[in-house]
């Protein structure tokens, strides 16, 4: 299989896995790293900054991007190329579900 035919498999898998992992990374707080904007501290994994708020957003994106990229590479290099049968609509459907789940998680802001 050429790189040209592998790319759509990678792109769809990346979108699906990134979006799904992102939801769980936010829900269970699995950042690859944390950042304290008050102190300028970068900390590995989930560690609160010594002072002020801690930001996990960058870390959640890094966790999801690595998971998406690794899964995408594995699926597009699998023997027999089963990724070709992957429905392309998953690239928008799974992110929509992830967005809906995150909106539900944050609904408390709109009901206070």
């Amino acid at each position: 299989m050429s790189n040209q035919s592998r790319f759509p498999v990678f792109a769809v898998t990346f979108a699906v896995v990134y979006a799904a992992v992102y939801y769980f990374a936010v829900y269970y707080n699995w950042p690859l790293f944390s950042y304290g904007p008050q102190t300028g501290q970068w900390l590995l994994l989930n560690h609160p900054a010594s002072d002020g708020p801690t930001m996990y957003w960058y870390g959640w994106m890094a966790t999801s991007a690595i998971a998406g990229a690794v899964a995408g590479l594995i699926v597009c290099y699998l023997p027999g190329n089963p990724g070709r049968r992957l429905w392309s609509g998953l690239a928008w459907l799974v992110p929509v579900c992830s967005i809906a789940a995150i909106a539900h998680m944050l609904s408390g802001y709109f009901t206070r």
Binding site: F7, P8, F10, A11, V12, F14, A15, Y18, A19, Y22, V26, W57, W60, M61, S64, A65, G68, S88, A91, W92, P95, S98, I99, I102, A103, L106, G108, Y109, F110, R112
Partner: peptide, 28 residues
């Protein structure tokens, strides 16, 4: 200003998920 804070929280997650769409968006 909880609704504004909530809308901004959702924004941060939407932008993060939007990044995941870009390779597929480009390809299709």
């Amino acid at each position: 200003y909880w609704k504004s804070v909530g809308a901004f929280e959702i924004k941060e997650h939407l932008i993060a998920i939007g990044l995941a769409l870009l390779p597929a968006y480009w390809y299709f």
